[in-house]
């Protein structure tokens, strides 16, 4: 479960107060929830708040951690990082992978942070890469992979610790349509397995596959 309650984020730009997210409230359910809106509508800021990259000016983000609900936005940086590691997976538009690690090591990275054993990490990372169809690319560094392959490695990595929540920020933004289609299929299949997927996009075509669509304009939820 992920819930935003009266989430507000204000920035000071010189003399002007900019409200990037304005009293946003929503309870995210398993399945795909698409957040759409033109650029500057506050999509990225909203994702930053929901994932705990940033803290809101007002309101709060709640996340279910096992039996108990935790107010993510009230925790310190270290605790937020720890919850992100266990409960959330991320696929960004670009800069998804650590450039000096192989595909396998990238996928194994969150498991290393979580303290899993080397053998276990390697086996699971290899299995996840096979699941996204990259079993022959495990030892490749990111710069030897195509954009679509890199996104698939990112998806495999986001599943490494089997998190209930998946954030996908313009995951097909830089891809050709065939690669984009492949990536979306993988994301959709994860949503069908009961994960809560938050898909941030300005592509309305992509948003059509979502179970729920949230439209943002000037930081406000228009309908949803």
């Amino acid at each position: 479960m992920l819930e935003a309650i009266h989430l507000t984020k204000r920035f000071h730009q010189g003399e002007i107060d900019v409200v990037a997210v304005d009293r946003f409230s929503h309870r995210f359910q398993p399945g795909i929830t698409a957040v759409v809106g033109p650029s500057g509508s506050g999509k990225t800021t909203l994702l930053n708040l929901l994932a705990g990259f940033d803290t809101p000016t007002e309101g709060e983000v709640r996340v279910q951690d096992g039996e108990k609900a935790v107010v993510l936005s009230k925790l310190d940086e270290g605790r937020r990082a720890e919850l992100r590691l266990r409960l959330m997976g991320f696929v960004f538009q670009q800069w998804n992978l650590i450039p000096t690690l192989t595909a396998l090591e990238n996928v194994a990275f969150p498991m290393m942070l979580a303290g899993h054993r080397l053998k276990e990490r390697q086996e699971r990372a290899a299995a996840l890469l096979a699941q996204v169809g990259l079993e022959k690319r495990v030892k490749h560094l990111p710069n030897r992979l195509s954009g679509g392959e890199q996104q698939r490695v990112a998806i495999a990595r986001s599943l490494a610790l089997d998190p209930p929540i998946l954030f996908a920020d313009e995951p097909t933004g830089n891809l050709d349509s065939a690669s984009g289609e492949r990536v979306m299929e993988l994301i959709t299949s994860q949503a069908r397995k009961g994960r809560t997927v938050i898909l941030v996009t300005h592509d309305l075509e992509l948003a059509r596959r979502a179970d729920c669509v949230l439209r943002l304009r000037d930081g406000r939820l228009v309908d949803g």
Partner: peptide, 16 residues
């Protein structure tokens, strides 16, 4: 910097 940002987004702590 982006690489460190990515690591922290994934869940790495500052001390890591």
């Amino acid at each position: 910097i982006r690489e460190f940002g990515l690591m922290r987004a994934i869940g790495a702590r500052r001390r890591f």
